[in-house]
C-alpha cells in the first residue's frame, strides 16, 4: 500500500515533468513595417530564435537586430546606427505567457486563437505588451503567428523632425514561427 503510494507519487512527478514539452525554432520570421507619407519601410528578419513550453504556456523570443534585412542598404544602416543602435543593444527579447492556455490542445491538430502578454525589451527599454495571435497545431509541429503595434517612442527611439514624414510613430510587427519539438543534443 505504502510502496504503491510512493510509486504513484514518483510517477506523478515524472509524468508532470515529462509533459513539460519544449519546442524550438531558429528561423522564426519577424517583420517590421512602417507606413509614412513619403515612404513605407519594411524589414524582415528570418533568423529569430524562439522557445515554447507548451505545458506552461511560456515562451520567449530573441531577435538579433542586425539580422533585419531592408530593401535599401541605407535604411538598414540608419536602422542599426541611428535608431536601434544595434552595437549597444544587439538583441530584442520577449518573454511571456499564453494567458488563455486552457483553450489550446497542443496534442490535437487545429487552430486556436490566443492572448499573450509579457515583457518586450528593445533598445534597452522593457515594456509590458499584450497581443493576440493564433496557434496552429499540425502533425506535431506548432505554428504561431501574431501581429501587433509598437510605439517607437515607448522604446526611447527618437525620430528627428526632419524625417517625421519618412518614419511612422507606430510600426506594425508581424511574427511567424514554426516550432519543432526540442530534442536535447
Amino acid at each position: 500500500m505504502k510502496g504503491g503510494m510512493i510509486t504513484a507519487m514518483i510517477l506523478t512527478v515524472l509524468a508532470m515533468n515529462a509533459s513539460a514539452q519544449m519546442y524550438l525554432t531558429r528561423d522564426a520570421k519577424v517583420t517590421f513595417f512602417s507606413k509614412a507619407p513619403i515612404e513605407n519601410i519594411e524589414a524582415v528578419n528570418n533568423e529569430v530564435t524562439s522557445v515554447l513550453n507548451t505545458s506552461k504556456g511560456e515562451f520567449g523570443f530573441v531577435v538579433l537586430i542586425k539580422s533585419f534585412k531592408f530593401k535599401k542598404a541605407l535604411m538598414e544602416e540608419h536602422f542599426n546606427e541611428n535608431y536601434l543602435e544595434s552595437n549597444t543593444y544587439p538583441k530584442a527579447n520577449f518573454k511571456g505567457m499564453i494567458t488563455d492556455l486552457s483553450t489550446v490542445s497542443f496534442d490535437k491538430d487545429g487552430s486556436y486563437p490566443v492572448k499573450v502578454k509579457g515583457d518586450l525589451s528593445i533598445h534597452g527599454v522593457t515594456q509590458n505588451v499584450e497581443a493576440t495571435g493564433t496557434i496552429t497545431v499540425s502533425q506535431g509541429n506548432i505554428l504561431v503567428s501574431s501581429k501587433f503595434n509598437l510605439r517607437v517612442k515607448d522604446f526611447n527611439i527618437k525620430i528627428p523632425s526632419t524625417v517625421v514624414n519618412n518614419i511612422a510613430e507606430i510600426v506594425d510587427i508581424t511574427v511567424d514561427a514554426k516550432y519543432e519539438p526540442y530534442k536535447k543534443s
Binding site: 524550438l24 524562439s50 513550453n53 511560456e58 520567449g60 523570443f61 538579433l64 527579447n93
Partner: peptide, 11 residues
C-alpha cells in the same frame, strides 16, 4: 529558467 537558458544557449 530553462526557457531563458535555452534561448541564451541557442543565440
Amino acid at each position: 529558467s530553462d526557457i531563458t537558458k535555452m534561448l541564451e544557449a541557442e543565440i
